[in-house]
Each structure stands twice: as structure tokens, then as C-alpha cells.
């Protein structure tokens, strides 16, 4: 039971895992590219990314390219550490089975 408690609740959803995985190996990724990588809808990405932002795991940048608004994401240091420790607990859990 002990190890399961350590699994980060913020990363329970597949979409959030996906967002974090993509950002771990990339610098800034914009909304459209993230959406097509994860194969999800606008609303789905928007709600999960704002939840991750609220936890301080990702940084959101909003800018204008010409007249179009563009949103990009980047992982924060806190997010990086949290995700790595989440991966470690996943690994431990699987090994203990």
C-alpha cells in the first residue's frame, strides 16, 4: 500500500502523462502540435494543461503570431522532478509485483 500512495495523483490521467512525456524530451511545444501528438480534442488538452499549470508542473506562454493567438507549453523544474519521481515509483511498483 505504501508505494501506491506515492504515485502522484496529478499524473493519473493518460492525457497528463502524455503532456508531461512530450515536454520532458522537448523544449516549447505549441497547442496544435501537442493536440496532434496526443490525438485529443481542444477542450481536453485545455483542461488538462491548465490543471498541470495550476500544480506548477508546466509553464504556459501565450503570444500572438500575426493576428493568431498561440499557446505553448514547457515543463518547469518542479514538474521535471515530480515526473521523474512518479516514473521511479511506477518502476518500483512494477518490480515489486
Amino acid at each position: 500500500m505504501g508505494i501506491i500512495d506515492k504515485l502522484n495523483k496529478d499524473f493519473e490521467s493518460r492525457v497528463r502523462l502524455g503532456i508531461m512525456s512530450v515536454l520532458m524530451v522537448n523544449d516549447w511545444i505549441d497547442f496544435t502540435e501537442m493536440k496532434s501528438l496526443l490525438n485529443i480534442t481542444d477542450g481536453n488538452l485545455a483542461s488538462h494543461s491548465s490543471a498541470l499549470e495550476k500544480s506548477g508542473y508546466i509553464e504556459v506562454k501565450k503570444e500572438f503570431v500575426g493576428k493568431k493567438p498561440k499557446t505553448s507549453y514547457r515543463v518547469t523544474n518542479i514538474g521535471r522532478t515530480a515526473f521523474i519521481s512518479h516514473l521511479n515509483s511506477l518502476e518500483k511498483l512494477i518490480k515489486s509485483k
Binding site: 493518460r14 502523462l17 502524455g18 512525456s21 512530450v22 524530451v25 511545444i29 501528438l37 511506477l90
Partner: peptide
Amino acid sequence: MSQKLQEDLSHIRSMMERSSR
């Protein structure tokens, strides 16, 4: 539970690969 974890890990791996290569 174990199967879900395995799936999580393979999802993470595939997302990292898809997005960086």
C-alpha cells in the same frame, strides 16, 4: 493494476519517441 501501470509506461515511452524523433 499492474496492467494499467505497464500501459502507462508504454504510453510514456511512445509519447517521448513520437514527439522527439
